[in-house]
Design a protein around this nucleic acid. Structure first.
Lengths: 323, 323
DNA sequence: TTGTAAGCGTTATCAT
DNA sequence: ATGATAACGCTTACAA
């Protein structure tokens, strides 16, 4: 691979002249500049990024870290991020799993976006710096050089439940996601608070355990069937479980939404395909990614001070699975 | 950021001793080694990858290049690749779109996998080298240091059509994908050849143009309806178009598969949700990614000579949209 | 066992 | 306008 030396040799100039010519400095004669450029092109020469980065502390590269390949909506988020990054003339590298540490560590990138529950808070706290601002999309961290852009689960869930109450629903059940996850906590809390506000009871037995999988939703619904404890409306912590519940009821000839209503969260593809179509909460994924990247660039351009977490607003898609 | 110098200073040794200690060389005393390691840890020191790469020509990093965010099946492929790469103790960086050039150019990575139609053959041909073997997943390139791992569209399509013929179908139509793409070409050719082999006519008017989108499939089916030219079985170049066709017929009360059969290609999520469920071709995405990465590592470990293109076998999922 | 010094490919500073 | 040289952070002969 041709280096700056090779070009210098063939152009009969010093390497500094080559460097200057290539970087458009004004201190190089027009004739030499042209000659150097031609030769560089001819030799298929490109400056070595790593060597350059050793000197110049700017990589024009942003990292996006994620690892949950199961959930296809990450692609939309990546698309949003990518478009923003490219618009700013930067490069994007996406890294998965444990590679993250290395890339964040040593000035490989100018900034990072993280959407990976497996990345521990501690790693983020220790690697974020003036030189490497980090935007997190899956948690709320309040710290210097760290910025959160997260979905406002709580807010949209209160809205959803409020409207369900307005539609006349009183007897609620909740199929929960993995205990301890922030998503599950906020979504549940949103429902609970709104019910309370309307003085509607919510008993522990109305809370069904689940783990975000379709199967767990199916099983929770089976449990309701067996115990003959079918509510008026079931709020599920995500769509996959809602789909499972719909299947369980449909299998038993229970008609949705006439005999029981079901709502989910996420607006996955299937939500719009299953019969009846699922009422759910849609997260504007592309915009989420785009906005998160935008925040990062605002920071990089020093137009931004530390902020409260940026909340992305989701919106409700009313479909046939609820009245 | 702490550098090797800082560690050396605090440990009262030379930087080479630090380097040797950290890299587990045998030429360093047990006492010093421990002291250096402790200090390094305490200072939160990690060697700078770029500086190291400047010396040692090995990055232990593989790049995967893609850009078509629309198609969610890329996630599965990435998962396969990632698992393989991690198993080998390497890091994976995924890069999108134009960033590719830069990453491939200057020894950023030890090898690359490409699944991005937007990347031109020329770029691959010029960047692949002894130092940077490239595996392509979306085209067949026969060249030194370039290896293809591609889906055998032709083979599975001939199988599919053969079985359709055995099931009694004689009157075929084809809804094509984007003209000129290898996928469309191979899939169409597979069908055509098998029909020919069974002396079944296929006239130009039985070929309907499409562009891989659901809408184009819908329109092609509308065209059949209007011209009252409904075949016994419609072979679609992909699932999205097959879904469009199903919708078009269902809208008109045409019963599938009784009045017309439809088969697709890809086995997207919807294929298993739409009513009737779509007979289609399933590509083992995870395995595809895993295998492609495996080929790359075989090359890196010099266990592999240049090969004919590796073909991934797909298989047929018989469902309700065909007899 | 430890240290010195060269070199990887750049850019930046300072002479010339 | 051009060139010599130091420096970026690291590894690796080679010397001590």
């Amino acid at each position: 691979m041709a280096s700056i030396k090779d070009v210098a040799k063939r152009a009969n100039v010093s390497i500094s002249t080559v460097s200057n010519a290539l970087n458009g400095k004004s201190n190089v004669g027009e004739a030499t500049r042209k000659r150097v450029l031609d030769i560089a092109k001819d030799m298929n020469y490109y400056p070595n990024t790593m060597a350059r980065n050793l000197k110049v502390k700017k990589t024009n590269t942003i990292a996006f870290c994620f690892s949950e390949f199961e959930r296809s909506f990450y692609l939309e988020i990546i698309r949003g991020i990518n478009d923003c990054v490219v618009n700013h003339g930067y490069d994007l590298i996406i890294c998965a799993h444990h590679s993250i540490e290395r890339f964040l560590r040593d000035g490989f990138v100018d900034g990072a976006l993280v959407l990976d529950k497996k990345v521990k808070d501690e790693l983020i706290l220790t690697t974020a710096s003036e030189k490497l601002p980090i935007v997190v999309l899956d948690r709320a961290i309040k710290n210097k050089n760290i910025y959160s852009v997260i979905v406002d689960n709580y807010r949209v869930m209160t809205d959803l439940v409020k409207e369900l109450i307005q539609k006349g629903y009183r007897k609620f059940s909740y199929i929960a996601g993995v205990e301890g996850t922030q998503d599950n906590r906020e979504r549940f809390q949103g429902m609970k608070d709104m019910l309370e506000k309307h003085s509607i009871d919510f008993l522990p037995k109305q809370y069904y355990h689940g783990d975000f999988t379709e199967k767990s939703g199916y099983q929770a619904a089976r449990l309701m069937l067996i115990s003959k404890d079918i509510p008026e409306i079931i709020v599920c912590a995500n769509d996959d479980m809602a789909v499972g519940a719909i299947r369980a009821f449909t299998d038993e000839g229970i008609v949705i939404p006439d005999q029981v209503g079901i709502v989910g969260f996420d607006d996955v593809d299937i939500a719009n395909f299953i019969e009846p179509k699922l009422t759910t909460v849609s997260i504007p994924k592309y915009e989420w990614g785009m906005y998160a990247a935008t925040v990062l660039f605002r920071v990089l351009q020093e137009k931004e001070e530390a902020l409260v977490p940026n909340k992305i607003l989701a919106h409700i898609k009313w479909r046939g699975s609820s009245r």
